[in-house]
Design a protein around this nucleic acid. Sequence first.
DNA 1: CGACGTATACTCGTAAACGAGTATTCGTGA
DNA 2: TCACGAATACTCGTTTACGAGTATACGTCG
Lengths: 215, 215
Amino acid sequence: MVKRRKVGSLLALAVLSVVAQRPMHAYEMASVLRSRGKDQDMAIKWGSLYTVVHNLARHGLLREAGSDRQGGRPERTVYEITEEGRAELADWTRELLSDPEEAPRRFEAGLSVMAGLPPEEVTALLRRRLDALQDLIAAQREALERDTGGLPRLFVLESEYGLAMREAEAAWTRALLDELAGGTFPRLEEWRAFHGTGRLPADVAELAEGGRVTD
Amino acid sequence: MVKRRKVGSLLALAVLSVVAQRPMHAYEMASVLRSRGKDQDMAIKWGSLYTVVHNLARHGLLREAGSDRQGGRPERTVYEITEEGRAELADWTRELLSDPEEAPRRFEAGLSVMAGLPPEEVTALLRRRLDALQDLIAAQREALERDTGGLPRLFVLESEYGLAMREAEAAWTRALLDELAGGTFPRLEEWRAFHGTGRLPADVAELAEGGRVTD
DNA sequence: CGACGTATACTCGTAAACGAGTATTCGTGA
DNA sequence: TCACGAATACTCGTTTACGAGTATACGTCG
């Protein structure tokens, strides 16, 4: 039940959330976001920022609150959030918290085309993945500990969650690797053979080809 | 180290992976993908499909292999994969398997703006999330057990992984809910108060502002 | 004091994503 | 047998995302 938003990108959410604090101009939004480390999870693209701000204004979620000029710098338009904007921010937050996402996960896509590579190579690749994951986990854990010194828990939940997910990912990858490396993964032989011939085993081909259009 | 692909959308990956089996025309690609249940994780948008196929052809990853006409149906262009296309598919698979993604997770975005809602509401929303997650998990588990009857493990890994991730998500959500409902979450009072006043506690404001917005 | 690098503040054009619409044909039941 | 709905096979126009480019001002190092 993901609602259609007037402006749908997550950058728009970020913009709303900073303008909700106080009016500012577009460039400042980017700076604030950047200083909050938000650019880590959602890279701020300049082109998108201005498009998004314009669209938010066009749909009445932001409104121009005059323009100011500092020194001889180019003039800049200051935006403030509208009541509608606040409502949208709250509603969107509600949705993000309550609806589990069915995002297209890239790794899942990878798994789904994995059979195209031989099992030995897959094993090596997954080992690389696991290493990278462990590095990431270590780095994130460190960053989290640094932050929990100053910031209240409420503001680091995001990182805590990210860390938990990576750990789960690492655990799953490790388990799969054990099966592959230990040779206990089922039908390894067939998988390997399938590369020499380029043909799927008969029973699989049958099923893959359209077994279940279960209507 | 995510490489820039000539055609970057995951739909392109899916297209390459089906055309790698045998030449086909665009509409058929969609049907095969649909029959494989791929439309669950990645909804196939018609507009995108034709754009993507054209772009793949433009970049030499697919090539036209004539056109056929069945009955009086509109003529359709049949595409086959090129050597370059196969190479791209393999390389892309390698990347997807070995590089952990740093995808923008929507729930993380939600957590990062969560402070804008009062803790009671957040608790209710997370409870809704947990319920939904549990329903999803039950459904996926059932589907998986049905499939493992016929399909070899290699072809259901994707679902296994998805299931594992949802379970991890549910576990994390449950733990957070316990803290919120049990009142052990730190500084709950301040969080609640902050809604009456609309102002952040002093120390948080200072840190959140990062001191970096030099004015 | 002036040249140079960096921060500020955008604009614009390209390219991708998308959804609604169009047109034909096949199968099926009344 | 023929009307009607589902499936086939796209096209087209609108939005949205993005990145490279532009232009000015401020600080600073020699």
